[in-house]
Simulated scan of single mutants.
Amino acid sequence: MSRRPRALITGASSGLGSGYARTLAAEGYDLVLVARREARLEELAEQLRATQHILAEVAVADLSTRGGIDAVVEIIAAQPIDVLINNAGYGLRGTLLGTSAAELNDQDRVLTAAVRELSLAAARGMHARGRGGIVNVSSLAAVTTMGQYAASKASTLVFTEALAGELRNGPVTVTAVLPGFIRTEFHSRLGMERPGPGLIWLDVDQVVRESLRDARAGKVVSVPGWGYRLAALVAPVVPRPLMRWGSRGFSFARTRGQ
């Protein structure tokens, strides 16, 4: 058995998830990489084994299914996980009324149910061992009214804060990460052009670096990027009618971009 710390990362096949994987591998962590796309996971795992000389296990799981969540819970129960990164997620192309209940349920299962169940499974083991950290990737969309995605991310934020409250003053940290726009495949998969000026877009490496720094400092909420930190401070005092208006405008732009 390796004596290196071990991190489990969901949504590890691309974007922010692969960024966390590369950073933690470079720091000497063994990895459990979880996603639906086996070929991408295997390619990333092989690269990290060869370049960082760590152990990288691949676990193909669809977290929108009961079986996928259970499979990852079993991995967490079977081996010590020192760091859990709940990053898996995706957006939907359609509006609430134009999307089936099954699609909305699947998305919510990935963004909330999987996060909740994996976090609780990991937290119990970490608490018993007296060490560990959980990072749940929410979104600044959590403060908006941008459809089911925003609703699910808001749920994840509140859950993470609640779990952190239960574990306060102990050796296990729990952190919600609220990124803004990041340069990943997220928007291209939805058939959307990147909105706004380039300066609002963050690099994956910056989000990973700042969020891990905040998590290690014991912060409950991490907002990478100074501009987004300012927005997060202002958001609670923005009147909800104004927030709804702004969210609606973004949704209309998104619909036209499909």
Rank of each mutant, 00 (worst) to 15 (best):
E57L: 11
L163S: 02
A164K: 00
E27Q: 15
V174N: 00
E117Q: 14
A114K: 07
L202V: 02
F252S: 12
G28P: 11
A142G: 13
P179K: 06
E38H: 15
V110Y: 04
S222M: 06
A122S: 13
A215W: 13
I200Q: 02
S188I: 11
V158Q: 12
G227N: 07
L84W: 11
G89M: 08
R124P: 08
S100N: 04
I9P: 08
L157M: 08
A151M: 06
R131A: 13
I76H: 00
K153N: 02
G132W: 01
R4P: 07
M146S: 12
F252M: 13
T51A: 15
F250V: 11
A114Q: 09
G132D: 04
Q206F: 09
E43C: 01
L212S: 08
G67H: 10
I85Q: 07
L41H: 02
S251A: 15
D214H: 12
I85L: 13
G15Y: 01
I81H: 02
Q258H: 07
A12I: 10
G28T: 07
S119A: 14
G98N: 13
A45N: 05
R229M: 06
V137P: 04
R116Q: 13
A114I: 13
S14C: 06
A35I: 07
Q258S: 15
A253R: 14
P197A: 11
F181T: 13
A162Q: 08
L202Y: 06
R216M: 08
A45M: 06
A164R: 05
A176V: 03
M126G: 06
P179S: 09
E46P: 03
L55W: 02
V208E: 10
L97F: 12
L199G: 00
V115C: 10
I54F: 03
A26I: 04
A101R: 12
G91P: 09
S155C: 09
A78I: 02
T65G: 06
Q52N: 12
A39K: 14
E42K: 14
E166M: 01
A78E: 15
L97E: 15
A59K: 10
V135Q: 04
A128F: 10
A154D: 04
S18D: 08
S100K: 04
L199F: 13
R189M: 12
E193M: 12
I76K: 01
L84V: 11
V172M: 05
T255K: 08
E185M: 09
I200H: 00
L140F: 09
A253F: 06
E46Y: 01
P195F: 09
R6D: 09
D82M: 09
R256L: 14
R209S: 15
E185S: 14
S14L: 08
V58F: 02
V177K: 02
G132S: 05
V223D: 03
T144S: 15
T175M: 03
L157H: 05
L44S: 05
G125H: 12
A21I: 00
R194M: 15
N136W: 04
A141R: 05
A101D: 14
T144Y: 05
V208Q: 08
I69K: 05
V158G: 00
Y149S: 01
M243I: 14
R4C: 10
L199R: 09
A25Q: 03
S2Q: 08
T99H: 05
N169L: 07
L48D: 09
A122K: 02
E185V: 09
G11P: 10
R93P: 08
A232G: 03
